[in-house]
Amino acid sequence: MSVEPEVPIVQVEEVRENPVLYKIISSDNHVFTISEHAVKLSKTLWDLITNLGLTAENALDNPIPVENVNGKNMETIVQFCERHKYDEEEPEYTNYIREFVLPEWDRQLLSIDNEELFQLILATNYLDIQKLMDYCCRVIGDMAKDKTPEELRIIYGIPTDAEDDALERSASDSPGPSG
C-alpha cells in the first residue's frame, strides 16, 4: 500500500466478542480501524473485503483505501457503523419508506452543516449503508417541513431555473482545463 498513515489513527471501541478489525484509509489519508460487524453495514466495503480475501490474520496489514470519502465523513460513518453494528437486520421495503423514530444519538451525530450533510449522503451512497442513508434522508426531509419554495431554495441550495440556465451557459462558455 503506497499511502503512509502519517495522521493519528482513529481508535474505535474494542470488540471483545469478535476481535477482527479492518483498517480503512480515507481520501485525505486518515486511517480508521473498524470492526467486522460494523464494516458489514457497508455493502461496498464488505464486498471489497470479501473480494480482497482479507482475513482475521491479514486484515490489519492491508488497509483499504477509500478515495471517494474524506476523513471527516469517514469518522462519522465509522462511529455510526460501530454504534449500530448489532442492530437487528431490517426487512427490505418495496413500495413505501420505512417508518422509524430517529434516535437522539443519531440526530446529534447528524446535526451538522447542510453542505456537510449532503457530502455525508454522497459518501453513504457510495459506501451503500442503507440505515445511515435512511437517517440522513430523514434529517434532510425534516428540514423541508412547512417551508415555502423560497425557503427550500435556500436550505437545499436550489437555484431558480433562470440561475440554473445562467450557470449552465457560463459553464459552457468558459474554456476547459486545456483551453
Binding site: L110, S111, I112, D113, N114, E115, L117, F118, I121, L122, N125, M133, C137, V139, D142, M143, E151, R153, I154, I155, Y156, G157, I158, P159, D164, L167
Partner: peptide, 22 residues
C-alpha cells in the same frame, strides 16, 4: 439545529445529489 445553520447559505448541493438519493 442544522436547518438553522444551513438557512443562511446557498450551495449547489441539491443539484449534485444523485437521483436515487433525492
Amino acid at each position: 439545529m442544522s436547518d438553522q445553520v444551513g438557512f443562511n447559505k446557498i450551495q449547489p448541493i441539491w443539484q449534485e445529489t444523485p437521483d436515487n438519493v433525492k
